[in-house]
């Protein structure tokens, strides 16, 4: 079937089996590899993208359900100033998520910091509850997020709170 949607701001259309998962469409048909297939069950968070402005597990979206939606992937935000603060914050405290989760965690941090410029720890917990991680601690994540907030503050772009 033919499916059309907005992808990182551009209108796209493709012929695709309706039961192909959005995460695989992004990777295999559009070569956007930030979202990765992990569990295909909505549990690991590696496939996270924005659909209509909301964080969504793209493995749970058969492509037909993406018709007319607005999809933003990590690649669509990689060059934004906000993402640069997040990357710098993560680097400064040596917080390096594994290759499978890296981009989806950056995207989740982006969603968190755009809605909660100075997030509390319970807000960080809530946003990251869609990621399952066996290799790093929440403590490391808190420090990385706090560092990103600090980077932005020092640059003069204060959060709204």
């Amino acid at each position: 079937m033919t499916v059309s949607f907005l992808l990182n701001g551009k209108s796209v259309s493709l012929d695709v089996p309706p039961n192909k998962r959005l995460v695989d469409v992004l990777r295999e048909d559009f070569h956007l590899e930030g979202a990765r297939p992990g569990c295909y069950a909505g549990e690991c968070g590696a496939c996270t993208v924005f659909v209509n402005g909301e964080l969504t597990h793209s493995c749970l979206v058969p492509v037909f359900a993406a018709q007319d939606t607005d999809i933003i992937t990590y690649e669509g935000l990689a060059d934004t100033q906000e993402m640069k603060y997040i990357l710098a914050g993560f680097d400064a405290v040596h917080y390096h998520p594994c290759a499978n989760c890296r981009q989806s965690r950056l995207l989740t941090a982006y969603a968190l910091l755009t809605t909660h410029p100075v997030p509390e720890r319970r807000e960080i917990d809530a946003f990251f509850s869609g990621h399952r991680c066996g290799c790093s601690s929440m403590g490391e994540l808190y420090t990385a997020i706090e560092q990103a907030v600090d980077m932005r503050r020092r640059s003069g772009r204060h959060g709204r709170r």
Partner: peptide, 9 residues
């Protein structure tokens, strides 16, 4: 129920 990315769907 689930997590925010599940609840958005």
């Amino acid at each position: 129920i689930g997590s925010p990315p599940v609840r958005s769907l």
